[in-house]
Simulated assay, not measured.
Amino acid sequence: MNHAQKGFTLIELMIVVAIIGILAAVAIPQYQDYTARTQVSRVVGEVNALKSSAESIFNSGGQVVSSADDLTATPRQINIGWTGSNLVDDTHGNNGLEVTNGAQADMSYNVVLGTDASGAVAGVTITVSRSTAGAWSCAITGGGSVTGWKDSYAPAGCPHT
């Protein structure tokens, strides 16, 4: 009687394991890059959304702040409306948003990535600035080669400088 064996040989199983290992070696770093890029893009979008609020406060004669409103101050201090992000380091208060020159035409605000952000982008600062002419710009600083930062993480509208 001829008994046909069923199943895979050891060599066939080893080949499948090797192929899965090669695919994982390529896919995991790509996934980490996509995650870091997505995190930076998300925070850039969140802080850029505050431009209209800052412009409205500034144009009404108020001072843009990241803390509580103080309507008795001169000029009136009005909160920009930042509610925070789990990707932003908030150890310095105000949910991690820092406003500079809030009462002047050339105001700016920034956040530092941290907390739940990928190690490759943690410590990077995203700054949104308004010129005296009313033009807004965005820039990313920090994130040297020590943390694994890649310039491809920065979205097109907010370059790494």
Rank of each mutant, 00 (worst) to 15 (best):
H92M: 00
L87N: 13
T91C: 04
D89A: 14
W82E: 11
G123C: 06
T91G: 15
S118K: 10
G119F: 01
D70I: 00
T132I: 11
G93V: 04
G119P: 12
G123V: 08
N95S: 14
N101S: 09
G84A: 14
T72W: 04
W136M: 01
G114C: 05
T83I: 15
G102A: 03
E98C: 01
G123L: 05
G93M: 05
S131A: 14
D106W: 01
G93F: 03
R76G: 02
T127Y: 00
Q104F: 08
T74Y: 01
S118G: 10
I78L: 13
I80Q: 09
L113S: 08
D69Y: 10
T72I: 07
I78K: 12
G81E: 13
G96K: 09
A117M: 13
L71I: 12
W82T: 12
G102Y: 00
S118H: 09
T74D: 09
G123D: 09
M107R: 15
G81N: 11
A133H: 00
A73C: 11
T83A: 15
A122N: 11
A122F: 02
A105F: 03
Y109P: 08
G96F: 04
A105R: 14
A105Q: 14
M107P: 07
W136F: 03
V112G: 06
T127K: 03
N101W: 00
V88W: 11
T72P: 07
L71D: 08
N94T: 09
G119V: 05
V99D: 02
N86G: 14
V124A: 12
T115S: 14
W136P: 03
T127P: 04
L97S: 07
A120R: 15
A135S: 12
A105I: 05
T127F: 00
P75L: 07
L87G: 12
V99A: 02
A120Y: 07
V99L: 00
S108H: 04
Q77P: 02
A105H: 05
G119L: 09
V128S: 05
